[in-house]
């Protein structure tokens, strides 16, 4: 009985509309937080008031209203500014160690410790 309820609830969660009132706005905010300001490179374009950041926010807004997907927008930016402009590092051979490193480390260190255990 309990597990049935759990299933139903999980179902509700997954199928419910998870966006707040303004669909575009939440997506917009999430997007601009992932884009690096190329001028003052320590901020994303959500925080930066640099002219370029303002322009980029406008452009992102435009593309969203135009119905473009997140992937399209991100590709648009990296095609012109390189991967550097996204705070989400790319997943390619050069970043393989970056993405796999933590898991590898976890596995190795767990093995090192638990293999020495005396039963």
């Amino acid at each position: 009985m309990i597990s049935k309820i759990k299933y139903i609830l999980v179902g509700i969660i997954f199928f419910s509309n998870t966006y707040a009132e303004d669909f575009d706005n939440q997506r917009y905010q999430n997007l601009i937080e992932e884009i690096r300001c190329m001028v003052c490179q320590n901020q994303n374009i959500a925080e930066s008031e640099a002219p370029l950041a303002v322009d980029l926010r406008e452009k992102v807004k435009e593309m969203l209203l135009d119905g473009k997907s997140n992937i399209y927008i991100k590709n648009y930016l990296t095609d012109r500014y390189s991967d550097f402009i996204l705070y989400d590092p790319p997943k390619n051979t050069q970043t393989a160690l970056l993405w796999l490193g933590p898991v590898l480390f976890l596995v190795i260190i767990t093995y090192l410790f638990y293999s020495r255990r005396e039963r």
Binding site: E34, R36, N44, S82, D83, F84, P89, P90, Q94, P102
Partner: peptide
């Protein structure tokens, strides 16, 4: 000498 990338919140959230 490889491409410059940025690593920020999305990476740390994922890992």
């Amino acid at each position: 000498g490889l491409e410059k990338i940025s690593i920020g919140t999305p990476y740390y959230n994922a890992v």
